[in-house]
Design a protein around this nucleic acid. Structure first.
Lengths: 192, 192
DNA sequence: GTCTATAGTATGATAGAC
DNA sequence: GTCTATCATACTATAGAC
């Protein structure tokens, strides 16, 4: 697995920003994590915003890959939406410690009125459009958009409270509840 | 309205921490906002954690007052839960700009592994216990706790996406949805 | 209680040798 | 590409005069 220094920097920055927040992550920490000097770091990224931009683009790429994989792995739109909901279970350990990587980044950049805020929000937009498409394929018509936002909001809420209360039973309960809602919903739907 | 310098400091810090986050709020900003020197600031609060503690205690007091007022203003547990849900509408302008003051603070302190984290989480606990009591009074028995967490999670999710998408129609839709769920729920409930 | 002055540290960022 | 200085700035925090 060859990886360039630049890629190793973005990897480390991505992880540190997720774990400690953007503001609280320093160049020194990233450089130490990669095992290079601060001077070398600046050869690859001139400003802190540059490294943030690279991290966001990396997350956008990975998100697109993940959404593509969910689509490939599930034959039905219902199965795809369930794959989305299920990340709350699959990633529960990380979510309990650090929250949702998308939600916490957007919240922080929003408060900072950071220039990269809009780009970070695109992460949410990727999920929202993907979910909307699944609901459209389910035959929800104009309701597909609102339904996508609804699922997104509920999973966000679960992430936030999961990191506060560290209660795995709560997460599982809410995921079950969401899945039941989905099943009931699709059963009542014209296309099914 | 007489207010001590200390109170004015806590007021200013509370607002700045909500708007810009704890990490991004400096002593200089708070002092400037109050109109005092940094030296004077340190006469009242020795460390940044001290001022954070004071802000959290202030928010806890205000939250208790608010929950008490909701209880006094509404005769039924259902009306009280609706009062909680309705803060998403009443505070929508601030929530769209800065998110939920509880959720964003807990998320940030969680990532920082900050000593005040536990105390900040008590803000969520206040809401959770209060909601649980309302569901208990509705006759939900052992389900009161999970139902309280469910309402808390859904309102949190709406807050997070409200600040990302800045979509008032989305907030109103989700609040309507939650209120309909509540009405349907209490109609099917033994106590009603 | 309030101020000015200042210390010590960490940070973002640059210059220049190898 | 990588390193070792180094700078300027902002920050938390302290000391001491009024």
């Amino acid at each position: 697995m060859p990886s360039t220094t630049r890629e190793r920097i973005v990897d480390a920055a991505d992880q540190l920003i997720y774990e400690h927040g953007f503001e609280h992550t320093s160049f020194a920490q990233i450089a130490d994590s990669v095992g290079i000097s601060r001077g070398n770091f600046y050869h690859h990224f001139r400003t802190k915003n540059d490294i943030l931009d690279a991290v966001i683009e990396r997350r956008l790429d990975r998100t697109r890959d993940m959404l593509g994989a969910w689509k490939a792995d599930n034959d039905t739109p219902l199965g795809r939406i369930r794959a989305f909901v299920h990340i709350l279970i699959d990633n529960r350990a990380l979510i309990e410690r650090y929250g949702c990587p998308v939600g916490t980044l957007c919240a922080e950049l929003g408060k900072l009125a950071h220039p990269a805020r809009g780009r970070a929000n695109e992460l949410f937009v990727l999920f929202q459009r993907w979910l909307r498409r699944q609901f459209t394929e389910l035959g929800c018509g104009d309701e597909a958009g609102p339904l996508a936002m609804h699922v997104l909001a509920r999973s966000q809420g679960v992430s936030t409270l999961a990191s506060t209360f560290q209660d795995e039973a709560f997460v599982r309960r809410e995921v079950d509840d969401l899945e039941n809602w989905l099943l009931q919903f699709s059963a009542n739907n014209p296309v099914h």
